[in-house]
């Protein structure tokens, strides 16, 4: 009740005004480029080449989308692969990461600095692409294996350490009383750490999900044409573009004039097609980003 009264006070109003203004400007700055992407994806290739990107398509055309949706079942399949990989990878990654973060955040754990170092070290030193690739293909047999889309980005040490810092901000007293009640680590982890760290989990989960969603690099490295059915969305879309352009160039070599591939609009349409579903995930997560909810809830 008290809070409501405060809300109306002068500085609240001022703060809201300034916030709305700043966030509003930033939002517009973020929306305009994306608007350009959408508008460009609906333009003719030639009008982009001649007149650049415009807020309203100069010559409207659905060619880019027509090319991408040419074989709908393949596109759906690629969506399916990406969703599967994202769901499995995010779930598993979040579990593994948060377990480790829980232990490292625990002040009673004597070796937490050493173990943190063990993890952190890998984010500075790496063997480079070639040794990594050799090991993955020769010994782990990642070739044309869906695991190659999951395992390489399953644990991100940066996220692990960020999650650790979130967990450390949970008041220690809450853990202590649970331990005194005789709860084991697993109980404390599931019953206290996870519920209290929802915002942190949502953040890291979102980041992991985005990494999976946007990953085409591992697909490029480990999948070849033989396993088309494993192509994730981003890689699949890319392939359509290069393939269309290659076919076109080839046709021209034969002396057969072919209609131009809408390369530019296709690149933009790819952004639109690949962004769509994942952008819907974020509003869904937003309920975890409301201030002052979590701790009060547990205490109450």
């Amino acid at each position: 009740m008290l809070k409501k009264k405060q809300n109306k006070s002068y500085d609240r109003v001022m703060f809201n005004l300034i916030s709305c203004l700043v966030l509003g400007i930033l939002s517009v700055a973020c929306v305009i480029p994306f608007w350009l992407v959408i508008s460009g994806s609906l333009s003719k290739q030639q009008s982009i080449q001649l007149y650049g990107y415009r807020l309203i398509p100069r010559e409207f055309s659905l060619d880019a989308y027509r090319m991408l949706f040419k074989i709908p079942e393949e596109l759906l399949r690629a969506y399916g692969v990406t969703i599967l990989v994202t769901v499995v990878g995010t779930g598993l990654g979040l579990l593994i990461t948060s377990m480790a973060a829980y232990v490292l955040a625990n002040r009673n754990f004597r070796y937490r600095y050493q173990v943190s170092f063990f993890f952190y070290f890998t984010s500075i030193f790496g063997g480079g692409l070639v040794p990594w690739y050799i090991f993955n293909t020769k010994y782990l047999h990642f070739h044309n294996n869906i695991i190659a889309l999951i395992l390489p980005i399953l644990v991100n040490v940066t996220y692990l350490l960020i999650l650790k810092s979130y967990m450390m901000s949970i008041p220690e007293s809450l853990y202590e009383s649970a331990y005194l009640d005789g709860a084991g680590d697993l109980t404390v982890y599931f019953k206290i750490a996870l519920p209290l760290c929802k915002a942190g989990l949502a953040t890291v989960g979102l980041f992991i999900a985005l990494n999976y969603w946007n990953d085409w690099y591992n697909a490029m490295l480990f999948l070849d044409e033989g396993s088309k059915e494993l192509y994730p969305l981003q890689y699949y879309l890319n392939n359509i573009l290069t393939k269309a352009q290659a076919m076109n160039a080839a046709a021209a070599r034969s002396g057969i004039p072919a209609s131009e591939v809408p390369g530019e609009p296709m690149k933009l349409a790819m952004t639109v097609v690949a962004t769509g579903p994942i952008v819907l995930l974020y509003p869904f997560l937003q309920k975890y980003f409301v201030k002052g909810v979590t701790i009060g809830a547990v205490k109450g």
Partner: peptide
Amino acid sequence: VKFMSWSEYEQKYPLIFASGE
């Protein structure tokens, strides 16, 4: 026949020599 697309041959080409493929 296996194909290596134009957009990725620069990266993949040396790798297939290094891997045990």
